[in-house]
Design a protein around this nucleic acid. Structure first.
Lengths: 241, 241
DNA sequence: TTAAGTAATTATGTACGATATATTATTTTT
DNA sequence: AAAAATAATATATCGTACATAATTACTTAA
């Protein structure tokens, strides 16, 4: 049993080691030099760099290889979007992850909230109220569907804003990706859309303004209850799309 | 202006497309053929494959390129462990993510719980009780530290088991990775270790057996309260290690 | 005939060299 | 001095050749 891993993998580790032992240097050596330094061919080096690039650890332009310190954790999912490669189990896991984060984020939403965010949320909630009213006045089915679409969009905005308030980049990335994987946030195109949720966005909003993290967390759990119940169905739908 | 992505990226997409349009075939064509099919050189193809390999989407052995359907979302973090590449912000985000998941997982822990898991948790909690007793009897500082180490290990086991109960693979992967990034779970090596947590593991365990998800979630939040408070300090520590 | 051992085949792994292209630096032209 | 043309440089891409390990085919011995 020889060297366990392939040369490319070894080289990848060497590169990471090189980076961590040269914390001051932003730019890696040029490929030819670097290949010689590491004692591998340029092809192998390029494959290694390619992997690190795929992981978002480095970025390389035509004239320099830059070291990016903050790779985004959920970058893996990006290339997978729309390929249908994720099986039912993976989709389910991701869907669950979203629900967990949505509920678990409560404390951090409170930590990050400020007047600006409150205003922005207020605007979103207001927009939703307007749409609700329009919906109640809508006559034909076509406009109802149209408004329902907008409502769905506003719904997404609301939850995205909450994640934004936490200031957690990973969380925002995840939300962005997951939004594309699932049509996200259960369909409300039915007429009884307005009483689907036990707790409304307005309720959440008011709790965020005047309530406690605990109360907010509990309310969020109730708000999402339909999505807990319809989890299987929603995943089925995502797989089909 | 063409499709301003590099050939490797384009090829990567082509490969993904190839996979998703040939859902039956497990194996990709051999490199030479595949390169010709996609109209690129073998080098470019290999770089593309290399990236997909890094993302955990495919695995290739000496004689065949296998398509792996379930890449693990948190695979990105694995190569980063121990390189010190993650900056403060990233570490903080990850740490927060863990706390969110720990709290948000409550419902799914209840969904997944069964007699076997309860037994296993019981064993862990029992082990902890033993160690607690040993600790109270310990005379010299050395053995105290030794026991504290074991207690920390048991603590990790307890929370890992909870994640395991959910059956969510991503969650387990995340827990595994994060454990290495942070020494995880605040230091208990002080004498007052036993009253650090407002809610003990035994309390959580009993709630899991006889309580409700809501109660459990709330208890978990309290259990983790010290880690919410010491977040900054813990991150500092992880960055240093 | 079966089992063990060996050779041939095959696909990936690795290396080197050459050309293309885009970016930066330099020089030339007005 | 500003704009345009040109040279230099580093990455991007390609092609070929060889090495290595795994599979298969084949041979040989009991």
């Amino acid at each position: 049993m020889n060297g366990y891993s392939t040369l490319v993998e070894q080289t990848q580790k060497k590169i990471l080691h090189y980076i961590s032992t040269n914390p001051d240097t932003k730019h890696l050596p040029k490929e030819n030099e670097f290949a010689e330094i590491l004692g591998v061919s340029r092809g192998v080096l390029r494959e290694s760099l390619s992997q690190l690039r795929a992981l978002g650890i480095i970025e390389t332009k035509r004239k320099k290889g830059t070291v990016v310190v903050s790779p985004n954790v959920f970058g893996v999912l990006k290339p997978l979007m729309g390929t249908g490669l994720l099986d039912k189990k993976s989709l389910k896991d991701l869907y669950q992850l979203r629900l967990m984060l949505e509920i678990g984020a409560a404390d951090f939403i409170f930590m990050g909230k400020n007047d600006r965010f409150i205003e922005e949320l207020d605007a979103i909630v207001g927009q939703e109220a307007d749409l609700d009213q329009q919906m109640s006045l809508a006559k034909d089915e076509a406009t109802k569907i149209e408004i329902a679409e907008k409502l769905k969009e506003v719904d997404i905005q609301f939850h995205a804003k909450l994640f934004e308030i936490t200031g957690n980049q990973d969380l925002m990335d995840f939300q962005f990706i997951i939004r594309h994987l699932f049509t996200l946030y259960s369909p409300r195109m039915k007429k009884d859309y307005h009483d689907r949720n036990i707790v409304s966005h307005i309720g959440l909003f008011n709790l965020l303004r005047n309530g406690t993290p605990d109360a907010f967390r509990m309310a969020m759990r109730l708000h999402l209850s339909t999505q807990f119940e319809n989890m299987e169905a929603n995943i089925e739908k995502a797989g089909a799309q």
